[in-house]
Amino acid sequence: NKSRCTICSKLAEIRHEVSVNNVTHKLCSNHCFNKYRLAN
């Protein structure tokens, strides 16, 4: 079950899903999750 990561755009296994204003951001790693948190 692979999806495209919101941060790095890599097609990968999604580890984190963050839902903001009915938009789901898919994040493939802790690294991308941290980058997402810093950016938002």
Rank of each mutant, 00 (worst) to 15 (best):
R4Q: 14
C32P: 01
I14D: 10
H31M: 15
K35N: 10
K35C: 05
L11W: 14
C28R: 00
S29F: 01
H31E: 15
L27K: 02
I7Q: 11
V20G: 10
C32W: 00
Y36T: 13
S19D: 05
E17K: 06
R15E: 14
V20K: 09
H25C: 07
N22G: 15
T24C: 06
R4G: 07
V23D: 15
K26Y: 12
T24E: 12
L38S: 13
S29Y: 08
V20P: 02
Y36V: 15
C8K: 00
N30Q: 14
E17D: 10
K2E: 03
N40C: 08
F33R: 08
S19K: 09
V18M: 06
C5N: 03
L27A: 05
S3N: 06
V18A: 07
C28G: 01
A12P: 00
R37L: 08
H16T: 05
R15F: 05
H31R: 14
C28P: 01
T24L: 09
L38Y: 03
K26W: 08
R37K: 03
Y36C: 13
N40D: 11
K10A: 10
T6P: 02
Y36E: 07
N34F: 11
V18L: 10
A39S: 14
C28A: 00
S19G: 07
C32M: 01
S29V: 02
A39G: 13
R15S: 10
H31N: 14
S3W: 08
T24P: 08
F33W: 14
V18E: 08
K35L: 06
K2M: 08
S29G: 09
V20S: 09
K35D: 04
Y36K: 06
V20R: 09
V20W: 03
V20T: 09
K10D: 07
C5V: 00
C5D: 00
T24V: 13
K35T: 10
C32F: 15
L27V: 09
C32S: 01
A12Y: 00
N34R: 14
R15W: 10
E17S: 07
N34P: 04
H25Y: 09
L38Q: 15
R4I: 06
N22R: 08
S19C: 09
V23W: 05
A39K: 15
S9L: 10
S9Q: 14
T24M: 09
V20D: 08
I14E: 05
L38K: 14
S3Y: 03
S9D: 08
C28M: 00
N21Q: 11
K2T: 10
H25P: 03
C28E: 01
V18T: 06
R15A: 12
C8R: 00
A12S: 10
V18Y: 03
N22V: 03
I14T: 05
V23C: 03
S3G: 13
V18S: 07
L11Y: 04
N34D: 10
F33L: 15
K26M: 15
N21C: 06
R15M: 12
L27M: 13
N34M: 10
A39Q: 12
L11P: 08
K26R: 14
C8L: 00
